[in-house]
Design a protein around this nucleic acid. Sequence first.
DNA 1: CGACCATACCTTGAACTAAAAGGTATTTCA
DNA 2: TGAAATACCTTTTAGTTCAAGGTATGGTCG
Lengths: 112, 112
Amino acid sequence: MAQSNPPFMSGVPELLLLRLLDEQEMYGYELVRSIKQATDDAISLGEGVIYPVLHSLERNGALRSKRKAVSGRTRVYYSLTKKGRDRLEKLRGEWSRIQGGIATALGSAANA
Amino acid sequence: MAQSNPPFMSGVPELLLLRLLDEQEMYGYELVRSIKQATDDAISLGEGVIYPVLHSLERNGALRSKRKAVSGRTRVYYSLTKKGRDRLEKLRGEWSRIQGGIATALGSAANA
DNA sequence: CGACCATACCTTGAACTAAAAGGTATTTCA
DNA sequence: TGAAATACCTTTTAGTTCAAGGTATGGTCG
């Protein structure tokens, strides 16, 4: 019946986002720049990635949002819930696993 | 006109494959198991991924292939060309960059 | 011998993700 | 006033991976 697992290394945008929000609440537009900056320009995710992820995380109860009006503009600030912190730890673990696997393959790899 | 860059962390299957072939020539079916093993089961790529990558790398001149008949069965062994080794180094660098970026974001990240 | 599983190649189709671009609205600054 | 930046959001397109199917030979076990 062809139900597909997610690609083996997705979840990184979600991971970065949760990591940053775990430290301080932020709004979407801000996260776009923050991610770029926090990764030393290695990763740059557009709004077309960020907003959908924020919305889906909120739907799942991993994030909570509150609107703030700042100088006439509306910002939607997101912060982690308990569920969000759990999710962060889970993704962190998954990432460490695949990152480690790749490192092993690239490094010693051989001598087999 | 909407020409899209590849997703920010693709190229990993290609990287693993080149890395293994750099050490010894192998055939597709063998690579499927090798990748799983070399990454400590962290990454498991199916034949549907491996074969197309092999073919496209060969088309680009990064791999060279030779058929061998082993006990009545035909195997297609692949090995790296100069171009393939260059490509390997390039991908290695790219990977190190994004991997590093993520590590930075996950680690210190904050205290900002 | 017949059935079945492993080996070995390959392709197709569906699912999922990310990239790019477009759309609305307000503020700031030249 | 007019352009650029802020801030939200969605839609379209493209690209990758996953799952499964399709062919064929060889070995194993009842």
